[in-house]
Nucleic acid binder design. Structure first.
Lengths: 193, 193
DNA sequence: AATTAATTAGACTAATTGGTCTAGTTGAGA
DNA sequence: TCTCAACTAGACCAATTAGTCTAATTAATT
């Protein structure tokens, strides 16, 4: 049966709250309220607010890693086409979100990357894990001569995905997808062979 | 003579504090302490903490706009070379800062862009102002056939500069310039004719 | 010299912060 | 069925939050 509350459910709610509002702008009490748990349970599950936030990032990062793996494994498109369809999907997802939240790993990196070593290294971990999946697809595209070989696959992956992060800064203040679409068109024009 | 304290000096100190620590992680009392002013003076000069932060971003943005204008006006390099030297300088600047702070406009966009309309529009204003300067240089480079004409100057400017913002997320958690240098090499390789 | 508005100074406030503590409850294993 | 650790519950705490208020001081204007 288990007890009343479940860590993963709390982490999922925490993901929403932290992604939308950031780290320092959210109090523990707000998390308790949104998750519907008493403080005792929170501190039974997590050592501190920091520990909670790190675990939120970890869970999201790992879930997303699995999702990405499945996405590319199941794709019947060519490598470059599957990459394009991946980023198209990511941009569309942000549209349904009114372009306001962005990516929690990016948000945490910028807000607390400098002042919190544990969060910094956890965010970096997730990013690298995604990067390796992208690099594999890029590598396949290079072998098929779809993608430029001027740079190696991992570099192109980092270029693409961090470039995508740059679009979030613009999106959050312009609140539209204009620049994300420009980024998409230019990036794929540049890396195509 | 004037009074004891000066708004611009407070804003300059505020720039340092907010850039390094973010918005919600800094209290008004900390600003008072670092600037050496009493609370009465702060609330005499600024309506609120938000008003203060917006004015910090405005002042930095405008100062930087002037600096960029002078940088490109005084440059004796060709357009693409002056762009390269500009970004080289920006990367070096972050190195002296131990790669921890980044750009305040980017930081504020990510941390409070979603939840604070005034800050969002002020950050966007500064970004656009920089963008226009970059676009002018890019346009010159396009006329000289140094830079690709596959995309218009403003699009390339936004692509370049927001891409550079993406590098900050990586920098803040990896705390080195590796990815910034990769970004630099790839971006200029891609936009060169 | 008198008046006035701007500025300085910091004590104070109500609300909120992250976190602790104790008491009671639950569920699984012996 | 008994035992014990995990969990639930929320009152409580010291510190901090953004912001207010009143009084004193300063500089410029009349």
């Amino acid at each position: 049966m288990g007890y009343k509350h479940n860590i993963d459910e709390i982490l999922d709610i925490g993901y929403d709250v932290l992604r939308k509002n950031g780290y320092h702008n959210v109090g523990v009490n707000q998390i308790l309220k949104e998750a519907g748990i008493p403080k005792g349970s929170f501190y039974n599950f997590f050592e501190s607010k920091e520990d909670f936030a790190v675990k939120v990032v970890k869970r999201y990062g790992e879930t997303n890693t699995e999702w990405m793996k499945a996405f590319f494994d199941n794709s019947e498109l060519s490598p470059i086409e599957s990459l394009q369809s991946f980023y198209k999907f990511m941009i569309d997802t942000n549209e349904t979100d009114d372009y306001l939240s962005g990516c929690i790993v990016n948000n945490m990196s910028i807000e607390v990357g400098r002042i919190n070593n544990i969060m910094a290294s956890k965010a970096n971990e997730q990013f690298i894990s995604w990067l390796n999946i992208l690099a594999q697809v890029i590598s396949k595209g290079q072998n098929l001569k779809e993608i430029t070989t001027k740079f190696n696959a991992l570099e192109i992956a980092e270029y693409l995905h961090a470039g995508f992060y740059g679009t979030f800064s613009r999106m959050k203040v312009t609140r539209n997808r204009t620049y994300m679409d420009i980024w998409y068109n230019m990036s794929f024009e540049f890396i195509k062979n």
